[in-house]
Every structure is written in C-alpha cells, then in structure tokens.
Nucleic acid binder design. Structure first.
Lengths: 338, 338
DNA sequence: ACTCCTCACTAAACCGGTTTAGTAGTAAGA
DNA sequence: TCTTACTACTAAACCGGTTTAGTGAGGAGT
C-alpha cells in the first residue's frame, strides 16, 4: 500500500480531489480526465486505503460476531460454520467484512465486545441470546448497533431475526405421540439460553396439549458427555421413557450410543430425535430423526438486516424466517406395546 | 464514539498531544497532569479510535483468514472452529482481531484476499494449502505477509507452521498391519490439497515398508457422500479390503454406516480408521479409531508466528509442532483369518 | 549573570482519503 | 455586451489520532 492517492494525482497531473471524484463516479471531472485518472490508478496498482476512507466516514466497513463458547464445544456444533457462511454471502455483495471473536471465558466475552467497539466494527450480530442477557446493556453502553437471533426475553432495542425453534420440537413430539409414545423425555440444552428454554417449553406444551405430563426433563449442556449422562439417568428410571427428544444432534448421538451399548434397541425400545440436522446424523445407525434449521439463511438475513439498520434502510422491525422442519429417519419408531 | 481526543484535551485543559502522551505512558507529561488527563478520559468514557491510530501507524491491527470451502462441507469439519479458537487465544493477548472470510466459489477466494488487502488486515493465515497454490503469487502481488499451514510444495517466501499428518497415518497403517491386515485401503481427500497428498503418501509408504502394495486407493472429497461412494466401490471389489484408512472422520462415519447396513460387520469383517478425532467419533458404534490433531494449538501458534513476522521478532523460519496421535478405539480389530 | 539543560507542554504536521468552498473558463440568455 | 449558470477543476479543511519541532520556565553549572 505504498502508493497513495497523491501518487496517482501527480501521475495524472491533477489534484487529489479530482482523483477521488473520478474513482467514486462523482460528477465534477470531465470524461477524458476521468479516464486518464483511472488509467494512472491502474498503472500504479492503486486501491484506496480503507483505513483513510473509514476515518473520514466514521465507518469500519465491518460487522462483528462474538462467539462465547467453550473451544471444545465449538467444533462440535454445525451451526456456526454454516451461519458464518451465510453472513458472508451477504457481505460478499457489500464492501463489508466480518470480524470474528471467540471468547471462551465469560469475562473474555465482554472484553471482546469492548475490543470491537473501539471502531473495528459498525455493528454486531448477537447469537446464543441468554435469559436476561447482560450484553444488551453492554451494547447500549458501547453504542453498538446490533441484531439479535430471536427476540430476547428482556426488552431489546435491536431488531431480531427470528427462526422459531418451537415448531420443530412440537412436530417431533407430535410425531412421537402419533407413534404411540406416552413417556417422552427431553434432554435440553443449557436453560440459560433462550433457545434452550424455548425448546423445552415447546416440548412441554406439545405434551400438555396431548394430556401428557412433562416431568421427564433433564437439563444438559449441549455436549456429548452431557447427553450421555442425561440418557443414563433417564434409562435408569422406573418409568423409563420410550422416546427422548434431544436439544441437539450431538447429545442425541451420545444418547444413541449409550442406549445401544446397554442393550436398549433404537428405535425398538427407544425412539430418539435430535436437532440441527448435522451432516453425520444421517450416517448414524440408525439414521437420526432430527430437526433441520437453515443456519445459512439465518446468517444471510441477519447480516442483511444489520446492514440495513446501519444505512437506515431497515425500519427496525423483526424479520421472521421460515421455521426448521422435522426430518424423519429411522431413529424413531412405534412405541413397543407393554 | 462521539467523544474524541480533543474533547478529553479541552476537558483536562491540555493539548491533544498531551492526552496522547499520557494515554500511552510516554514521558513528557507530569504525573499530576497525567492523572488529570486519565481521569477526564474515564469521565468522558473515551477510548482512542483504532481507525485514526491505524491511519497514522499504517496498521490494521487485524489478521485475515480466508476459508475456501463449500458451505455444506464447512459445518461438517471440526477443524476450523477449533483452529479459529486457537487463533483467538493468541489474539486475545494482543490488540489484534481476526477478519474471517468464507469463499464458497473459486473466484470468490481471490476476491476475498483482494478485499482484505486494501488495508483491512496486516497479514493472513493460509490454510488448506493446495498443490501449486496460486495464492502464493497472489499474496506476493498484494504484498500481504502470511504464514502457511505446513510447507507448500512450491517455493514459498512465508514461514510455515507445521503439523505433519503423515506420522498419524503411518501409525494407523502400522497398527492395522500388526492386527494382521494385508489389504488396507485408503479413502483420501481431494488430492489438490497438500494434506490430501501427504496422507496418501504416508499410507502408501507405510504399506511399502511392510512389503504390501498400495493399490487400494480412492480419491474422495472429504464429504460423507464421497466417503460412502468410495466405500461402496471398495467393498464391491473381488479383493475387498479388510481395513480402510479414511482421510477424515466424516468419510469414515459414512463408510461405517454403509458397511453396517450392508451386512459387513465392523471391526469383524472390516476395520476402519478416521482422522480429526471429531467429538462424535467416540460416540459411534463402534467408537471410531482415529487420529487426533490439535487444531487449537495449531491456530494459536500460527497466529503467534504471524504476529512475530509483523513486528519483526520472528526470524522467518518454520515452526514444527508435535504431530497428531493415533487414538485407538473399537472400530479396528484383528483381521479375520481366511 | 550568563549559558546550558532538562522538563512539561503546545502547535502544527502528518497519515490517506473525502468533501466543501472557491476559481477560472465557457456558453446561454436578456 | 453584460449578467447568469454551469462545468471542470484546485486548494484546503477535515476525520482522530500520533509525532515532531518548538517554546517557556526553572534549575544547575561556571
């Protein structure tokens, strides 16, 4: 980046201002001069410095994403890579880039947002929204525009991009009820997350609607180990469930493995559903019935709304995307008659 | 970011320069004045704009990572999330951030690098290095400093951070030979990647060292579907292998699933090994013997070397990390005697 | 009493763009 | 012919920091 606008200006025999006008397609330079300037710029291999431009326009031309997850858990979740790829499909059409921050410790999360707020990004996308999420106040303090994934349970000044998880869970539970199951458990994710809560609520409500009780619940943490432990506890009960709805595919996989290695046949003795439709889920034995969200689309739209918010073209309202769909595979089957 | 250094300066009754000196711990301001300035800054909630600082210092305070993968493949690979988390552990100790770009189309990749080169990042980390990688020339043109993951097979001016994959594959093949296998196949990843090649070479050489031929090779593409197809072809052969070394866990999972659903018992009739040690691999039935790299460490060290390169403290030499280890599980067993 | 230093601080240049105000030249209109 | 309007361009301010050169005061040395 040694070549600057001044070099181009003197090469073309004009002022810096003229070069700027020519480059940005503004009126104020004659057509022949414009061509001369552009030729000089190309000859010198000049591209305007985003830093300088950003200083003047007070923009960073970047969006931020802070992922607060344990490093170990991160690699297991098919959500983020696809979500990020979705963000990129939008950013590729704009002169924006994505600044990614992974915060493993809790204190690191706030530090990450503060780091981004010193002018590195123009706005952030809030994922993994938590119950009473402290980041809402933090972002207000930092004056950082944002969009949230789904609407927080506390008042939020930010537009939300919503993909309701409850529909999918409801469909899974109804599917199991239809197969004759009455003892349907739920191994949930951390209830600190609003998506952990909404999945549990959907499960409980679907059971309630069928006149069934929602007592077979265990809170796990989205990890395979957690899913395994929860499954062990459930299967040790007197009133052992005949079906388990897991809050993600990884816990379901661990549950499946535990059941099979302990003589519980799937789906003969136990039906199992996951969530996420991870690539490996259809290659399990039996293939996993699961719920397929569209994280790519979610990322794409989240970035879109945030960019719209930044340039004033978005009205601030929520955007509701089509909900995840139940994918039927062989891990669910009829309840064994007693 | 409405509050600037000038606001702080007038609030403290000093000049802009004094504020800058005070903030950065330079000599040239008295201790009492320094305290007054810092107090004023805190009262106003001022943090210096990275944009302005970057303009003066010609630095972006960011590293870049371009991931060129199909969006679908991305979510399946446990490597990148952990690798990125590793990068972050280093960046958290510095005032640098990570700019991430996902390029799904091939043309998009070059565009991504060009986008980063206009002053958004100070250097990039090159992953998924390809045979005769065209990005080396591109980076030279863009004058972007870089580190590569493993040493490219063409001359490269950049330091490489190396984690040799061949040791793990060699160990896997030797393990299988020890179990009495003689027909050991390899389902490789795309040979356009140097890690696809080196894994194949290690497999072939380990076989050669034992006096066995390396003819049972199929090139797949790291996807589950590819792994399944390759497995189908291998199992259809007259001289069907008794063991398959896969280039990643996902292909191994698909192969396992295919074998089992076609009456081939694992490890009774067929032993299987993966690569990556994905979280779900130990929850398969049987649990997958695989090769565990340490992507977190790799990311951490890659960022370290790149930062060192940027501030001149790195000498430009390669850094060699400890190689991935074979993780023995139940998907490998003794070859069935004919 | 004079020079010479050092210290604490200010003014101004600077990074590389964008943008505004201003100027010269030309053409149209009265 | 003189004003008016418009075009094409330049000079300079500006964004928000850092950094250099310069200034005035106070103390030490001779």
């Amino acid at each position: 980046m040694a070549v600057t606008i001044s070099d181009v200006a003197s090469a073309a025999g004009v002022s810096k201002g003229a070069v700027s006008l020519a480059l940005n397609g503004q009126t104020g330079v004659g057509e022949d001069t414009r061509q001369r300037i552009l030729a000089a710029a190309k000859a010198l291999g000049w591209t305007p410095s985003l830093r300088a431009r950003g200083l003047k326009s007070s923009k960073a031309y970047a969006l931020g994403l802070v992922i607060a997850r344990d490093a170990k858990l991160l690699g297991t979740d098919p959500f983020f890579p696809a979500f990020i790829a979705g963000i990129e499909t939008t950013l590729a059409e704009h002169e924006y880039t994505l600044v990614l921050s992974v915060a493993t410790a809790r204190g690191a999360e706030e530090r990450s947002y503060r780091k981004l707020a010193d002018g590195r990004v123009d706005g952030v996308i809030l994922t993994d929204v938590r119950h009473d999420d402290s980041r809402l106040a933090l972002l207000r303090e930092l004056k950082l525009p944002a969009v949230t994934l789904n609407r927080p349970d506390a008042p939020s000044p930010f537009p939300a991009v919503c993909m309701d998880d409850s529909d999918g869970i409801t469909a899974a539970v109804e599917h199991l009820i239809q197969l004759g199951h009455t003892r349907i458990a739920h191994v949930g994710g951390a209830q600190a997350y609003i998506h952990g809560r909404s999945r549990r609520r959907a499960w409980a409500e679907a059971l309630g609607a069928a006149g069934l009780g929602a007592d077979l619940f265990i809170e796990a943490d989205f990890t395979a180990a957690g899913g395994q432990t929860a499954t062990e506890k459930l299967l040790a009960r007197e009133d052992r469930p005949t079906a388990i709805v897991y809050a993600n595919d990884l816990m379901a996989t661990a549950g499946l493995s535990f059941a099979q290695t302990h003589g519980v046949s799937v789906p003969g003795d136990l039906s199992i559903t996951g969530y996420d439709n991870a690539e490996f889920a259809r290659y399990l034995n039996p293939p996993l019935t699961t719920i397929a969200a569209d994280p790519l689309q979610w990322g794409r739209q989240a970035a879109r709304v945030l960019l719209g918010l930044l340039d004033g073209s978005h009205d601030g309202g929520d955007l509701v995307l089509s909900p995840p769909q139940l994918v039927l595979r062989a891990s669910t089957g009829p309840a064994r008659q007693p």
